[in-house]
Every structure is written in C-alpha cells, then in structure tokens.
C-alpha cells in the first residue's frame, strides 16, 4: 500500500532527485569533454529509490554501495564538487583521486566502503549490520546492490548470516534489468538468473521481502520506511526489491545522455515528449514523474519547481568549476595510505 506522502517530504525528495540528476548530467558532460576516461556508471532512472532510501535513514546508520554509487553519495549529503573531483581523479576529490567513479566513499556520512566488485556491497552489508548490532543503539545498515549481485555466491552467504543472527540490515536491490537488452542483443550485461523472482532467494532463508515500483518515490519511501522500522525494532533483516526502469542511456557499454538534458517543461506540457523516448518522458523518468505529481492541480507550484532546478543547476555549475580546477594528486603522495 502506498501511503500518501506529505508535500514537505515530496519537495525534499524532489530537490534531492534533481541534484542527483543534474550531477549525472554533469558527469556525462565532463566525460564527453574528456575530463576523465574509463568506464563509469550513471544513476539516472533510479533517483526515486535512492532519495527515498536516504530519507529513511538516520545519521548514525551505515551504508554500503556499488559501482553505481553517485546518486547514493549525493543524496546522503556529500559535497557535489568533491564527488565530481573524485570522478575526475583529482586531489580535491572525496577520496583524493584514489578511488574514482566506482569507489566514491565518505565514511563521515556513514558509507563503510564502496565496492566495485559485484556482490561486495551485499556481502559486507551483513558485517556492517553486525557492527550496528554490537553497538546496541538501534542503528541499522543499508546495503544497496543491483540484481546481478544475487548471481554471486557470496550474496547468498551474507543473506544467510544476516537471517541466522537477525542482523539489522536492509538489503535494497535496485533491479534495473527488468527491460534491459541482453548482451546477445548488443546490450549491456544484465541479469542471468534461474530464479524468475529474486525475492525467492531471501525468502528461502526466512527474510521478509517486498517489491516496489522503483520509479514511484512515494511507494519507495513507504516500503523502505517499513523495512527500516522493522530492522530498527530488532526484528532482523529485510529484502526490498525496487523495480526501476532501465534508462536508455545505460544500454550501451559506455553511458550516453541519449534522453538529453532533463527538460522539466515536459512535466508542464510546455515541451514535447514525442519520439523514441516517449515512454521514458511520460512515465518512466522518476524526476519528471514527481514533478508532475507536485504540479498536479497546483499551478502555483510551477515557479517553485523551476526555481529549485535553477538553484540545483547553479550548485552543479560551481561543483563542475571546482572539480575542473582541482589539481591532480601530487606524485609524492603515491604511496600514502597503504597502511593506516
């Protein structure tokens, strides 16, 4: 059941989602401009899940995430300039340029580690939850991972441990493979699993599961809040599968901004949504969907939506300038931090 959300919460989530979206558009632009090279992953299309999830957590909670981490780190409050600088491999980056796009990590915000190894986040998630349980303070852990993580054996091991010891872990699967092209069709790597319903795997271990529309931020917030409350009450782990829509730009191996820079006028009817990406613009883009919800029957909200976007874009312009101006890490630091 989707619980009605307050407008205050919707506006807060909308601002977060806009920042996540504009951040990824910056990343794409900086890549096109050759400010960084190498493989990277964008969070476009999953903003509803990540923003809702972060809104359900408290500062004392901990998080593990994956190669598709940008949205999580930004939604939790990391400085966009430092995050962009990290993606560019600069000294001013969140991690001094040592981690890059796949490993954005800010422990001050509760991120334990950001693993680019499929299954890494879910497997360390049980450990994070174990530490929370030892603290005995009602804090919990949230592990973000994609559907393919459940192909890894270690994911099953971690779920088993969490179930046996009733660890306070929200296992949040952001499933973006529902409509993905398989590699055989020239598409991106996608789910290869004998289980038709991934919920069956945690369910076999007695972990309560739920599936939610990952594009609907109200639904995501309600489902994740319920899971978080259960964990916080000491009832053990939960598994939430958020069904997100595969963004067209994620279809090729190297992401491309195939749907263009998000035009919020599509939500007001002032810009056309026709063409190849019509379904995305009309139904599947979580940012446009929430904008329509906020604007429905409230024309006065239009100025607020566009003002908010202008502020977010100004913030990202500053972040881009900071990242580009940040120097490369000094050669003398090469061997720093091998050991603590």
């Amino acid at each position: 059941m989707t619980k009605p959300q307050t407008d205050d919460l919707r506006w807060k989530l909308f601002e977060t989602m806009l920042l996540m979206r504009r951040f990824e558009e910056s990343v794409s632009r900086l890549n096109e401009q050759k400010h960084f090279t190498g493989h990277y992953h964008l969070y476009i299309g999953e903003e509803a899940t990540g923003s809702a999830a972060m809104a359900c957590l408290e500062p004392r909670d901990t998080i593990t995430t994956t190669h598709r981490n940008h949205g999580h780190v930004i939604a939790r409050g990391a400085d966009p300039g430092a995050a962009l600088a990290e993606i560019l491999g600069r000294a001013g980056g969140l991690n001094g340029g040592r981690g890059g796009t796949i490993h954005l990590c800010d422990p001050a915000l509760g991120f334990l580690s950001t693993s680019g190894i499929v299954g890494g986040s879910i497997s360390m998630g049980s450990g994070g939850a174990f530490a929370r349980k030892m603290k005995k303070d009602g804090s919990i852990h949230m592990a973000f991972f994609g559907d393919s993580a459940l192909e890894e054996g270690v994911a099953f091991e971690a779920l088993n441990i969490a179930a046996l010891w009733k660890l306070p872990c929200v296992f949040l699967c952001e499933n973006n493979s529902a409509e993905a092209w398989a590699p055989g069709s020239g598409g991106y790597t996608t789910l290869v699993h004998a289980a038709h319903d991934l919920r069956a795997i945690p369910a076999a271990l007695g972990i309560p599961t739920t599936r939610v529309d990952g594009v609907d931020v109200d639904a995501c917030h309600a489902a994740i809040m319920e899971g978080v409350a259960r964990c916080r009450a000491g009832e053990g782990p939960v598994f939430i599968e958020a069904m997100t829509k595969r963004w067209a730009g994620s279809a090729p191996l190297w992401p491309e901004l195939s749907t263009g820079v998000t035009d919020l006028r599509m939500a007001t009817g002032e810009a056309s949504t026709t063409g190849e990406h019509h379904a995305w613009f009309e139904h599947d883009d979580p940012v446009l969907r929430l904008a329509r919800t906020l604007l429905a029957g409230a024309p006065a909200n239009k100025a607020r939506v566009f003002d908010m976007d202008a502020r977010v874009r100004a913030r990202m312009a500053e972040a881009e300038a900071f990242a580009i101006a940040s120097p490369s890490p000094a050669a003398a630091t090469l061997l720093d931090h091998v050991f603590a």
């Binding site: 901990t62 593990t64 422990p107 334990l112 580690s113 890494g120 497997s123 360390m124 998630g125 049980s126 450990g127 994070g128 939850a129 174990f130 530490a131 929370r132 030892m134 603290k135 852990h141 054996g153 270690v154 099953f156 091991e157 971690a158 088993n160 441990i161 046996l164 010891w165």
Partner: peptide, 27 residues
Amino acid sequence: DRVLDPPTCEAGNAALGVGAAMGGARP
C-alpha cells in the same frame, strides 16, 4: 554475544569481518 559460530561460508565470513571492522568492530 561476541563469540559466534558462523555458517560454513568462508567468503561470507571474511566479508562479514570486513564490514564489521569498517562499521566500528574489531572482529
């Protein structure tokens, strides 16, 4: 509460230790 027998899953147990250590424990 602090001496536990995990299942037979070396990868899962090693990852449990990594996550717990990052989260403030000394496993």
